[in-house]
């Protein structure tokens, strides 16, 4: 055994580095995904929810809006309704499947746009400091003094209900958390020696931001986003509860929760299953986000 090790090192003094050379990106992505069980679970959950969201109409056993009062409030596993029926006799399983697309769209669109806007403004505030910083952070402070739900309600009251307006109002209320997190990260990063070293090399300003600062922001943004998706899905529930969210009868996990709360003691399945759906989705996003963060960090690669 020893002999082979010696000869092989004799031929090539850097075997590990030779292997690392030029592996196609998707291949190393797949290889590292297969190595991480939590990554796979998160990935599969997200794929599953996405599949339900996209193919819901063909998968769902019933029409989600078909009310049958004779079959109202059936407990789970009765009469062909796996997860039971609600107060109007609609199949909860079908409503969950149909609602997944709404919840997914709200969660992902809000995170995407709030993340983009907040990150950009946080970058500008943190990197350029001065007036930009003062103005942006004062706006953030003012918005922080408003309760989140109140702000969303006001916007929805002005613009009217509807999926698009929910997203707009959530983005409007949600970008500040990204701006704050990103700004503080950028403040720490811009003083790092490798950024000074970039300036000394003669890298243009925008390239320093895009190539050297932004990649170092991925970790906090991913962690934040995987938490925020769940928050926004639940925020939709709060807005629906107050009557401004996704309008019934269109199903969404949030308004299923708020409609079911009246029956919490008599028919627990009305709110339990949408709750579980939110938890599982949030879990999947978090697991996948954790794994993605590890992959993007070269120091943790391969572990």
């Amino acid at each position: 055994m020893n002999q082979t090790t010696i000869t092989s090192t004799g031929v090539n003094p850097h075997p590990v580095n030779m292997l690392r050379k030029r592996e196609p990106k998707w291949q190393s992505f797949l290889r590292r995904l297969l190595k991480s069980p939590t990554g796979i679970i998160g990935f599969l959950i997200i794929l599953g929810v996405l599949f339900l969201g996209l193919c819901g109409p063909w998968v769902a056993p019933y029409d989600p809006n078909q009310a049958e009062l004779s079959k109202k409030l059936l407990p789970p596993l009765s009469d062909g309704h796996w997860l039971g029926t609600d107060q109007l006799g609609r199949d909860i399983f079908s409503r969950l499947i149909h609602g997944s697309s709404v919840s997914l769209i709200i969660g992902s669109c809000t995170v995407l746009f709030a993340g983009l806007i907040g990150t950009t403004l946080g970058l500008i505030a943190g990197y350029f400091r001065g007036w930009a910083d003062i103005i942006i952070m004062r706006i953030v402070d003012v918005k922080l003094s408003f309760p989140f739900v109140l702000l969303v309600l006001v916007i929805n009251a002005v613009m009217g209900a509807g999926l698009q307006n929910i997203i707009i109002s959530l983005v409007f209320a949600g970008w500040i958390i990204y701006a704050r997190v990103v700004r503080s990260e950028v403040l720490a990063l811009r003083e790092k020696e490798f950024i000074l070293s970039c300036i000394a090399t003669g890298v243009p300003r925008w390239e320093i931001i895009l190539r050297h600062i932004v990649p170092n922001l991925f970790t906090p943004i991913i962690v934040l986003s995987s938490l925020q998706i769940a928050t926004y899905i639940i925020a939709e529930a709060s807005i629906s509860f107050l009557g401004f969210g996704v309008q019934p009868p269109q199903p969404a996990w949030g308004n299923m929760l708020s409609e079911g709360k009246d029956y919490i003691f008599s028919a627990w399945w009305l709110i339990t299953f949408p709750g579980i759906a939110i938890v599982i989705t949030a879990l999947g996003v978090n697991l996948f986000g954790d794994w993605l963060r590890d992959v993007l960090d070269p120091e943790l690669k391969g572990n």
């Binding site: 020696e193 000074l196 070293s197 000394a200 050297h212 960090d297």
Partner: peptide, 19 residues
């Protein structure tokens, strides 16, 4: 102009971008 004037930093752990 920086093409003609460069710098070597003190801390080799901090002066290279880890990513």
């Amino acid at each position: 102009l920086r093409r003609k004037m460069q710098m070597v930093f003190q801390d080799p752990y901090a002066s290279l971008n880890p990513k």
